[in-house]
Design a protein around this nucleic acid. Structure first.
Length: 830
RNA sequence: GCGCGAGUGGCGGAAUUGGUAGACGCUGCAGACUUAAAAUCUGUUGAGGUAAAACUCGUGAGGGUUCAAGUCCCUCCUCGCGCACCA
């Protein structure tokens, strides 16, 4: 008898798959349904595949093979996210050119992916640092530029002092760089942005219809952070000379110190989501960076205010976030509350953020917790304008921030705050001092990176510093080889140091190239389209091919909940608006799986020395089939799981038993149909099919184990069909073994083409069913009956059970609940 | 603080629609084979209880709805993740 030796059979089948290319997708094949599956393409690190990749790729592989067996025209491509910081940092560390490192790492990744037996369409392999790819990333930049969706702006940006580049908001996590963890700094620089905010509403609204995990959708909603409210103008009041009045067109107001300021400077606009509470606005607060702070501050308060502003500017954002104690200073100035016409003081405090809304608020301490805290601390008046429709006991110590009935609000009294809100906005807008306003927390996507290893931004500047697109026919703007690509503190990438490269002639004009490169997320925002037409040299992609394959049916990943998955949605919407594609969402179903952690539950990391190398597992004799099956079996897909080598052994034993069982059958074949095994077989087909469809892969494998246990108990009664069905169901998880044994059984076709087994619903049910017998809801016994047994029959049989009689003796049955084939519950009178 | 998840044996987990809690795997224990070990195979493995059964308890805690609750409702605790002064 042959022994199970994974190394032999896996090498054999991998070679066959490489030579015969059975997993290439067919464009425009209408005879079969199509399905497009993809994983988030990996950064090919020098360390090779890790167990997390294996989980990610195997999930997609199981589905690829499953749908393939079901007869689908499956596209499952593969690619590499090669541009970006990790590759460049690695190149710097090892003193090799990023180009060379990348080529080497791709070869390694490809080789390792093949050693795992993935059913990849290798004809569609792409990598983002390939000029044939980034040429089109540049082309897309140009289209965005033409529509005003790529623009330049000078502003404060997050700068990572370690990676020496600016970062997008999405790449700053709790004030730290997402890559290296260094605390980021503010730096004023002129940078390129993509105007993702133009799509804010659609990005938010379309989330509702996506078959994505709620967790991701919630994160994206929070990130977009839509707030519907109003802008309201407050006029700055003058204590001493109230009556300086207006002159034509502009309001002129005198300040305490006598200086006259014009209307533009005399208005503070605020954003609020609760205009209904305006009658309770008893003070105003400006962010320390607000442009009016200097002008309105009175001489008396000037020193204190300056000191406070200086102090907060010195603090990093982290420090500002850490200290939740309210601080602030009175400016000495007042504004008029337009609803009450009362004079209210204007304060400066860092709890108001400069970069959201107007950087100024009307403070309603009775109905906002932060304002309340501030008012308590500085003894500012609190006026209640909304009465909750609840008993007061609920709010003893806190203030009411919900809806309610308006009070102290003149003509709006006794109305519901929700309806009053709209009326107040109308009332204010009639007076020209208020308007509806929607604000978003999301900012535009900053894409400039002061690093070498990225897609060059296809822009050049004329002598006046005006940006011009590099014409399409001069694309790609090739990344030149340079000697020294290390980043520095100059705020410019290494490309600025490349001798002649920045010089370019466009339309006969001498210009200077942009030397920053694009954020790597730009590259990954359209690769799911390129897969459908990976070798097109005339355009980014052919609309007909996109139309055939895209959007992606199932996309699997474990990271990038906000950044990548928001950007790729943004670009898809842009492409649709450009008429390049016919859909507005890139991914129908998203699988967001958990991490594979070290045995102690900690994250695997080189520094902790707890990294499990998947290739070691293969080479130690377990083989790729065991590794793949184990990673699918270790727990539900969406959960984090800890590595457990003992369980790897359990899965190996499972496969080994299938091997031995099949060898025994080959030695002593049997043709007879055994009813019990046939039923077990059909039951298993139903269960495994259903489980794979609902992505419950761990229970699908458990069902295969159960089926194997049933077969192994009756080795003599197993027939060919029993075994072949087992192998077909196993094939997505352990394709090498399934193919090998299927062949050993004498089949001429490979198992991939042998179809997915079907089941007969009637055969998935036992002829006899076991019915649990309860008395008063407690289990007292079991009876076996025919499937179609009537309630009366079952009841009679149940009442005959000795153990049931013990609990029903001398009592009458008041109620009988019967769930066919499941349970009967007898409820006696007391 | 707010939002979203989750809490089930010694461990990972299962229970898809309110219907027999603990599938499947690991570990442990006992046995077979072996000079021995590994491998393999068989049995067993929630707690209490019993010679064996019966029976009692049991899905984070407490209450509720129901013939019936891991599952639904209320209150609370713990952990994880996300957001974090966004007006």
């Amino acid at each position: 008898m042959k022994r199970y030796d994974p190394s032999k059979i896996e090498a054999k089948w991998q070679k066959i798959w490489q030579n015969e290319k059975p997993y290439e997708a067919v464009d425009f094949d209408d005879a079969r349904p199509k399905i497009y599956l993809a994983e988030m393409f990996p950064y090919p690190s020098a360390a090779g595949l890790h167990v997390g990749h294996v989980r990610n790729f195997t999930i997609v592989d199981v589905l690829t093979r499953f749908y393939g067996q079901l007869g689908y025209n499956v596209m499952r491509p593969f690619g590499y996210d090669t541009f970006g910081l990790p590759a460049e940092n690695y190149a710097i560390k090892t003193g090799t050119a990023p180009q060379a490192v990348t080529t080497e790492n791709i070869a390694n990744f490809r080789n390792q992916a093949q050693r795992l037996g993935y059913a990849i369409d290798w004809s569609r392999e792409i990598s983002s640092s390939d000029p044939e790819y980034y040429r089109w990333t540049q082309w897309i930049f140009a289209r965005l530029f033409e529509r005003g969706l790529a623009y330049q702006k000078e502003s404060d940006q997050w700068w990572c002092p370690v990676d020496k580049t600016v970062l997008a908001n999405e790449q700053v996590e709790a004030g730290k760089c997402w890559r290296c963890g260094a605390e980021v700094e503010k730096k004023t620089m002129k940078q390129w942005f993509f105007k993702i905010t133009a799509y804010a509403d659609e990005l938010l609204d379309n989330l509702d219809d996506l078959d994505w995990p709620d967790k991701i959708k919630t994160m994206q909603r929070n990130w977009i952070g839509k707030s519907v409210g109003a802008e309201i103008d407050f006029v700055i009041a003058n204590e001493a000379k109230q009556s300086s009045g207006t002159t034509a067109g502009s309001l002129r107001v005198a300040r305490d110190d006598g200086e006259i300021i014009t209307r533009d400077d005399a208005i503070i606009t605020v954003f609020t989501t609760r205009p209904d509470t305006i009658f309770g606005a008893t003070f105003m607060v400006l962010a320390p960076e607000h442009h009016l702070v200097k002008q309105i501050t009175t001489d008396q308060q000037r020193q204190k205010v300056n000191q406070y502003v200086e102090q907060t500017q010195k603090k990093s954002d982290i420090e500002r976030q850490e200290n939740k104690q309210k601080t602030g200073v009175f400016t000495g100035a007042y504004a008029i509350n337009p609803a009450t016409n009362e004079k209210i003081p204007i304060w400066v405090a860092d709890y108001v953020l400069a970069n959201y809304g107007e950087g100024a608020i009307m403070a309603v301490p009775a109905h906002d917790e932060r304002d309340y805290e501030f008012a308590q601390k500085f003894n500012l008046p609190i006026i209640e304008v909304i009465k909750p429709q609840l008993s007061k006991t609920d709010l003893k110590n806190s203030i009411w921030t919900g809806e309610g009935i308006m009070v102290n609000s003149m003509q709006f009294d006794n109305q519901n705050s929700g309806t009053a809100r709209e009326k107040i906005v109308k009332w204010l807008s009639k007076q020209g001092i208020g308007r509806e306003k929607v604000n978003y927390r999301m900012r535009d996507w900053l894409i400039s990176r002061q690093r070498y290893w990225g897609t060059p931004i296809p822009i050049a500047y004329d002598s006046k510093g005006q940006p011009h697109l590099i014409p399409d026919n001069q694309l790609p703007v090739l990344l030149p080889g340079v000697e020294d690509y290390k980043p520095d503190d100059s705020g410019r990438s290494a490309l600025a140091k490349a001798d002649d490269w920045p010089k370019v002639t466009i339309d006969g004009q001498e210009m200077t190239r942009e030397t920053d490169t694009m954020d790597g997320y730009a590259d990954s925002s359209w690769y799911l389209l390129r897969y459908a037409d990976p070798h097109n040299t005339k355009r980014a992609f052919d609309a007909k091919k996109i139309d055939f394959w895209n959007p992606v049916d199932i996309y699997a990943g474990a990271d990038h909940a906000v950044a990548h998955l928001l950007y790729v949605r943004f670009w898809t919407k842009f492409f649709a608006d450009e008429g390049l594609i016919g859909f507005r969402e890139p991914v129908k179903k998203l699988i967001y799986h958990g991490y594979v952690n070290a045995p102690d539950g900690q994250k695997m990391s080189k520094s902790k020395g707890n990294v499990i190398d998947p290739l070691d597992i293969i080479d130690n004799g377990y083989g790729a089939d065991t590794l793949r099956t184990y990673e699918m079996f270790m727990g539900p897909m969406d959960q984090d799981v800890a590595w457990d080598i003992a369980s790897v052994g359990g899965v190996f034993r499972f496969l080994n038993r299938i091997w031995n069982l099949t060898q025994d059958f080959i030695a002593q074949p049997n043709d007879k149909v055994d009813n019990e095994l046939r039923r077990a077989q059909h039951k298993t087909v139903k269960k495994v099919t259903g489980d794979i469809k609902r992505l419950s892969l761990n229970t699908a494998i458990a069902a295969l184990m159960e089926y194997l246990n049933t077969l192994a108990k009756n080795p003599k009664r197993i027939n060919r069909e029993n075994i072949e069905v087992l192998l077909k169901l196993l094939a997505p998880f352990a394709p090498h073994m399934a193919n090998e044994l299927f062949e050993q059984l004498g089949n001429k076709t490979v198992i991939d083409n042998a179809g997915w087994p079907e089941y007969d619903e009637k055969l998935t049910e036992d002829e006899q069913t076991t019915i649990a017998v309860q008395v008063n809801g407690k289990l007292r016994g079991e009876i076996k009956t025919a499937r179609d047994a009537s309630k009366t029959e079952v009841k009679t049989a149940a009442l005959e059970l000795e153990n049931v009689q013990k609990f029903t003796d001398g009592k009458t049955i008041a109620k009988t609940i019967y769930v066919p084939n499941k349970i009967i519950n007898l409820v006696p009178t007391d």
